[in-house]
Protein backbone atom coordinates (compact mmCIF):
# COMPACT_ATOMS: atom_id res chain seq x y z
CA UNK A 1 0.00 0.00 0.00
CA UNK A 2 1.36 3.38 -0.98
CA UNK A 3 0.27 6.74 0.37
CA UNK A 4 0.33 9.77 -1.86
CA UNK A 5 -0.40 13.45 -1.24
CA UNK A 6 -4.04 13.99 -0.21
CA UNK A 7 -6.22 14.09 -3.27
CA UNK A 8 -8.76 16.94 -3.56
CA UNK A 9 -12.43 16.29 -4.17
CA UNK A 10 -13.10 16.22 -7.90
CA UNK A 11 -16.43 18.04 -7.41
CA UNK A 12 -15.75 20.90 -4.97
CA UNK A 13 -11.94 20.92 -5.34
CA UNK A 14 -11.67 22.08 -1.70
CA UNK A 15 -11.87 19.16 0.69
CA UNK A 16 -9.72 16.06 0.67
CA UNK A 17 -11.21 13.16 -1.26
CA UNK A 18 -12.42 10.40 1.02
CA UNK A 19 -14.64 8.30 -1.22
CA UNK A 20 -14.29 6.91 -4.70
CA UNK A 21 -17.23 6.26 -7.05
CA UNK A 22 -16.63 3.74 -9.82
CA UNK A 23 -18.90 3.39 -12.81
CA UNK A 24 -18.69 0.93 -15.70
CA UNK A 25 -19.68 2.55 -18.99
CA UNK A 26 -19.02 1.17 -22.49
CA UNK A 27 -16.55 -1.31 -21.09
CA UNK A 28 -14.52 1.47 -19.43
CA UNK A 29 -14.23 2.21 -15.71
CA UNK A 30 -14.80 5.81 -14.67
CA UNK A 31 -13.62 6.88 -11.22
CA UNK A 32 -14.66 9.92 -9.25
CA UNK A 33 -12.85 10.85 -6.02
CA UNK A 34 -15.06 13.01 -3.83
CA UNK A 35 -15.19 14.41 -0.32
CA UNK A 36 -17.71 13.26 2.28
CA UNK A 37 -20.00 16.28 1.84
CA UNK A 38 -20.19 15.97 -1.95
CA UNK A 39 -20.75 12.23 -1.67
CA UNK A 40 -23.75 12.84 0.58
CA UNK A 41 -25.06 15.67 -1.63
CA UNK A 42 -24.91 13.68 -4.83
CA UNK A 43 -28.16 11.84 -5.24
CA UNK A 44 -26.80 9.34 -7.68
CA UNK A 45 -26.89 5.74 -6.46
CA UNK A 46 -23.69 4.77 -4.66
CA UNK A 47 -21.65 2.44 -6.78
CA UNK A 48 -20.04 -0.59 -5.24
CA UNK A 49 -17.05 0.86 -3.49
CA UNK A 50 -13.80 -1.06 -3.40
CA UNK A 51 -12.50 -1.97 0.01
CA UNK A 52 -9.20 -0.31 -0.74
CA UNK A 53 -10.88 2.99 -1.53
CA UNK A 54 -12.76 3.20 1.78
CA UNK A 55 -12.58 6.53 3.53
CA UNK A 56 -10.20 6.51 6.50
CA UNK A 57 -12.09 8.82 8.77
CA UNK A 58 -10.29 11.96 9.82
CA UNK A 59 -10.23 15.04 7.64
CA UNK A 60 -6.99 15.25 5.74
CA UNK A 61 -6.47 11.52 5.70
CA UNK A 62 -5.73 9.97 2.37
CA UNK A 63 -7.79 7.40 0.52
CA UNK A 64 -6.08 4.02 0.50
CA UNK A 65 -4.66 3.39 -2.94
CA UNK A 66 -4.01 -0.14 -4.01
CA UNK A 67 -1.73 -0.66 -6.95
CA UNK A 68 -2.35 -3.74 -9.04
CA UNK A 69 -0.15 -4.69 -11.93
CA UNK A 70 -2.01 -7.04 -14.20
CA UNK A 71 -0.60 -9.26 -16.89
CA UNK A 72 1.61 -12.28 -16.86
CA UNK A 73 5.13 -12.42 -15.44
CA UNK A 74 6.96 -9.82 -13.33
CA UNK A 75 6.43 -6.09 -13.79
CA UNK A 76 9.01 -4.30 -15.90
CA UNK A 77 12.19 -3.38 -13.99
CA UNK A 78 11.55 0.36 -14.22
CA UNK A 79 8.15 -0.07 -12.54
CA UNK A 80 9.77 -2.09 -9.75
CA UNK A 81 12.46 0.57 -9.36
CA UNK A 82 9.84 3.31 -9.28
CA UNK A 83 7.78 1.52 -6.64
CA UNK A 84 10.87 0.82 -4.55
CA UNK A 85 12.00 4.46 -4.77
CA UNK A 86 8.53 5.65 -3.78
CA UNK A 87 8.45 3.29 -0.83
CA UNK A 88 11.90 4.54 0.28
CA UNK A 89 10.68 8.12 0.03
CA UNK A 90 7.58 7.37 2.05
CA UNK A 91 9.66 5.62 4.73
CA UNK A 92 12.12 8.48 4.80
CA UNK A 93 9.30 10.99 5.27
CA UNK A 94 7.87 8.83 8.05
CA UNK A 95 11.26 8.73 9.78
CA UNK A 96 11.59 12.50 9.51
CA UNK A 97 8.13 12.91 10.98
CA UNK A 98 9.24 10.72 13.92
CA UNK A 99 12.32 12.86 14.48
CA UNK A 100 10.22 16.01 14.41
CA UNK A 101 7.89 14.67 17.09
CA UNK A 102 7.94 17.52 19.58
CA UNK A 103 6.79 17.97 23.17
CA UNK A 104 4.41 20.94 23.21
CA UNK A 105 5.22 21.78 26.81
CA UNK A 106 8.99 22.18 26.56
CA UNK A 107 9.77 22.07 22.84
CA UNK A 108 12.04 19.03 23.11
CA UNK A 109 12.22 17.03 19.89
CA UNK A 110 12.37 13.26 19.81
CA UNK A 111 15.64 13.48 17.87
CA UNK A 112 17.14 15.36 20.85
CA UNK A 113 15.92 12.69 23.25
CA UNK A 114 17.53 10.02 21.11
CA UNK A 115 20.78 11.96 20.98
CA UNK A 116 21.08 12.89 24.67
CA UNK A 117 19.05 10.09 26.23
CA UNK A 118 17.22 12.65 28.38
CA UNK A 119 13.69 14.01 28.27
CA UNK A 120 12.92 17.72 28.61
CA UNK A 121 10.03 17.86 31.08
CA UNK A 122 7.42 15.63 32.75
CA UNK A 123 5.14 16.35 29.74
CA UNK A 124 7.60 14.57 27.42
CA UNK A 125 6.45 11.28 28.96
CA UNK A 126 3.06 11.87 27.38
CA UNK A 127 4.31 13.46 24.17
CA UNK A 128 6.70 10.62 23.36
CA UNK A 129 4.61 7.82 24.85
CA UNK A 130 4.52 5.88 21.58
CA UNK A 131 8.29 5.98 21.29
CA UNK A 132 9.04 5.37 24.95
CA UNK A 133 6.57 2.50 25.35
CA UNK A 134 8.52 -0.14 23.39
CA UNK A 135 11.76 1.04 24.97
CA UNK A 136 10.40 0.65 28.48
CA UNK A 137 8.97 -2.71 27.46
CA UNK A 138 12.45 -3.84 26.43
CA UNK A 139 14.44 -2.33 29.28
CA UNK A 140 12.21 -2.51 32.31
CA UNK A 141 10.67 -5.35 34.28
CA UNK A 142 7.04 -4.38 33.68
CA UNK A 143 5.56 -1.23 32.22
CA UNK A 144 3.44 -0.57 35.29
CA UNK A 145 4.55 1.18 38.42
CA UNK A 146 4.28 -0.86 41.60
CA UNK A 147 6.24 1.16 44.11
CA UNK A 148 5.68 4.23 46.19
CA UNK A 149 3.51 7.16 45.29
CA UNK A 150 4.13 10.78 46.27
CA UNK A 151 1.71 10.75 49.18
CA UNK A 152 3.54 7.88 50.82
CA UNK A 153 4.15 4.19 50.59
CA UNK A 154 1.53 1.78 49.20
CA UNK A 155 -0.84 4.55 48.04
CA UNK A 156 -0.37 3.72 44.37
CA UNK A 157 -3.03 1.00 44.32
CA UNK A 158 -5.65 3.11 46.08
CA UNK A 159 -4.96 5.94 43.70
CA UNK A 160 -5.52 3.72 40.66
CA UNK A 161 -8.66 2.23 42.19
CA UNK A 162 -10.06 5.73 42.77
CA UNK A 163 -9.26 6.68 39.19
CA UNK A 164 -10.94 3.48 37.97
CA UNK A 165 -14.12 4.35 39.88
CA UNK A 166 -14.08 7.83 38.36
CA UNK A 167 -13.58 6.45 34.86
CA UNK A 168 -16.50 4.02 35.27
CA UNK A 169 -18.69 6.82 36.62
CA UNK A 170 -17.83 8.93 33.58
CA UNK A 171 -18.34 5.91 31.31
CA UNK A 172 -14.80 6.33 29.98
CA UNK A 173 -14.37 2.61 29.35
CA UNK A 174 -11.12 2.96 27.44
CA UNK A 175 -9.46 4.62 30.44
CA UNK A 176 -11.13 2.14 32.77
CA UNK A 177 -9.68 -0.78 30.82
CA UNK A 178 -6.23 0.77 31.03
CA UNK A 179 -6.55 1.25 34.78
CA UNK A 180 -7.89 -2.29 35.22
CA UNK A 181 -4.81 -3.60 33.38
CA UNK A 182 -2.62 -1.61 35.72
CA UNK A 183 -4.33 -3.15 38.74
CA UNK A 184 -3.93 -6.60 37.21
CA UNK A 185 -0.24 -5.89 36.73
CA UNK A 186 0.00 -5.03 40.42
CA UNK A 187 -1.71 -8.31 41.30
CA UNK A 188 0.51 -10.37 39.01
CA UNK A 189 2.61 -12.81 41.01
CA UNK A 190 6.12 -11.56 41.56
CA UNK A 191 9.10 -13.63 40.56
CA UNK A 192 10.88 -12.81 43.76
CA UNK A 193 9.70 -12.00 47.25
CA UNK A 194 8.92 -8.38 47.82
CA UNK A 195 8.36 -6.71 51.14
Amino acid sequence: MIYYQPMKCEICHKNDAETVFRREEDGKTHELYVCRECAARESRPRPQAQRGARARGKSGSRPDVSVTISGSGNPPPFIEALLSATADLVNHIAEEEDCDLTCRKCGTKWSEVEEKGLLGCPGCWGAFAKKLGPRLQAEQRRVAHTGKSPSGASQSRKHIERQLQDAIRKEDYKEAAKLRDMLNALDAPKEEGGK
Binding site: G117, L119, H145, G147, S149, S151, Q163, K178, M182
Partner: peptide, 29 residues
Protein backbone atom coordinates in the same frame (compact mmCIF):
# COMPACT_ATOMS: atom_id res chain seq x y z
CA UNK B 1 9.72 11.48 52.34
CA UNK B 2 10.60 14.61 54.30
CA UNK B 3 11.12 16.50 51.05
CA UNK B 4 7.87 15.09 49.65
CA UNK B 5 5.91 16.86 52.40
CA UNK B 6 6.87 20.20 50.90
CA UNK B 7 7.57 19.51 47.24
CA UNK B 8 5.14 18.20 44.64
CA UNK B 9 6.95 15.48 42.72
CA UNK B 10 6.08 14.71 39.07
CA UNK B 11 4.30 11.35 39.09
CA UNK B 12 1.87 9.30 37.05
CA UNK B 13 0.04 6.28 38.45
CA UNK B 14 0.96 4.11 35.48
CA UNK B 15 4.70 4.78 35.29
CA UNK B 16 5.47 6.25 38.69
CA UNK B 17 7.92 9.06 39.28
CA UNK B 18 8.86 10.86 36.09
CA UNK B 19 12.58 11.29 35.54
CA UNK B 20 14.73 12.90 32.88
CA UNK B 21 16.28 9.57 31.97
CA UNK B 22 13.93 6.77 30.86
CA UNK B 23 16.16 4.29 32.65
CA UNK B 24 15.25 5.80 36.06
CA UNK B 25 11.46 6.11 35.67
CA UNK B 26 9.11 4.37 38.10
CA UNK B 27 10.67 4.15 41.52
CA UNK B 28 13.49 6.49 40.49
CA UNK B 29 15.68 4.26 42.63
Amino acid sequence: EALGKHLSFAWRPDIGFLTASPSDVGTGL
